[in-house]
Design a protein around this nucleic acid. Structure first.
Lengths: 246, 246
DNA sequence: AAGTGGTCTAGACCACACA
DNA sequence: GTGTGGTCTAGACCACTTT
């Protein structure tokens, strides 16, 4: 390949066009996760640019988290790895500082429903707004820390209802990838605080009216479309978050 | 200057040593905020390295937020600018989408106290653990959104008590800089959720037991030492936070 | 016009991984 | 040993800011 093969944009600098070009080949799964992309020298020859320019494009993709460099070995497409990301918000560790373990998952209900309008818009459902709805609990040492209320597009995810709980396991993203061919590469989380209604109080083992932390999550494909949308309701006493601002 | 003038480290690559060297000169206020550092060519000559290598060091400091480049003009030490950072957590906007304005600030009490042990450790106080304690409210359109409980080291900040409320204004960091010579360049925030006690409920205009969001903040100098430590108690219904994870 | 950062090149040499 | 990425150099030319 000696020239840009995709609709590459305006008068961007060369390295930026190269960067977008490489990103497009990753997004198109021409280079799947774990794959070693061609060596710098090879890419430089193919695109008829200097190695330095290709390096710069690659460096930016590394900074964005798309690629990973291993000296002496090659440059690899990063395998995204955040299913633990609810751990980001809720503390699933015991006082006995054990390693971080995936909490137990229990599926309460799976059914085909008519989705609320907001969900239908997020999942880009047709006018019937049909979706697969999943309710599940996340437990830790016998205590329910989080309950989740999740929607997947129908009919694409119809088979999700039939899968056995063992086949699904505690993490959904690997199932999306293995069974449905959807790779989740990013999530957006929005945090807010509410109070437990009767149902949530019972599930979480707290009083009605006690504080509950809501995590509204969208799981996204590389192209930004939505794979699932969910709200997680977590015990506020398990919530903790740290950041440094500069 | 032709060689490293500060305790520069091990066998790091040249560009990394240069980067640390430049960062040290910024931290030492040799190059204060807003200052234009020497041109690339000049630095390259002074340190006897190539321009490309200096560029790489500078690029990293730009990525870290320490420097800012302006094409054709120069490279400047960034002027940190987050006093609005409680806005990160609490929504101070009205439904009428006006511009983002600094909320009103009302000082309730300023006094010299014996600090709790945790605070004393954070502020590195002497054995008497004396500190200046400040209580204030942040209001928006007449409603109290956040109350703050803040500690500053004594005797360094003794004069903070005598300043008039007008002199202080709604933002503390400019006062720290102007009056006490302390530049806050970073903060760490830790978020958790609690419930309103009688005092907080009254101040925030909510029921006893209603959810309250705690923001535990450390305000840091460039060298990582603590200028102030505070806990903000905010109305949970005003709390909202968004992130994207990749 | 002079000075600054932004882009791009061409190539040397080093450190590390892998077969 | 061969191939890969990591460091470093030297210099050309461009785009923008300042005076």
């Amino acid at each position: 390949m000696t020239t840009m093969s995709r609709p590459v944009d305006e008068r961007l600098p060369l390295y930026a066009r190269l960067r977008d070009e490489l990103a497009a080949r990753i997004a198109a799964s021409e280079w799947p996760p774990g794959f070693a992309i061609p060596a710098e020298q090879e890419l430089a020859t193919a695109y008829r640019v200097s190695v330095s320019t290709i390096r710069r494009a690659i460096e930016q993709l590394v900074a964005e988290g798309l690629l990973e460099r291993k000296q002496g070995s090659g440059t690899y497409v990063r395998r995204p790895s955040f299913d633990g990301s609810l751990f980001r918000w809720f503390n699933f560790e015991d006082s006995a500082g054990g390693g971080r373990i995936v909490p137990e998952s229990r599926l309460l209900r799976r059914s085909v429903v008519t989705a609320p309008e907001k969900v239908a818009a997020q999942l880009q459902l047709g006018p019937e707004r049909k979706a697969v709805r999943v309710l599940r609990l996340r437990l830790w040492q016998g205590q329910t820390i989080v309950t989740e209320d999740l929607y997947l597009p129908y009919p694409r995810y119809e088979r999700f209802i039939e899968l056995s709980e063992q086949d699904i396991g505690p993490l959904f993203y690997p199932v999306y990838e293995r069974v449905f061919g959807d790779l989740v590469t990013a999530v957006t989380d929005e945090i807010s605080v509410g109070r437990a209604d009767r149902i949530r109080a019972k599930l979480l083992g707290i009083e009605v009216g006690a504080p509950v932390v809501h995590v509204d999550r969208l799981s996204l494909r590389r192209d930004g479309t939505v794979v699932d949308t969910r709200r997680a309701y977590g015990r506020a006493d398990r919530f903790r978050y740290r950041v440094t601002l500069k």
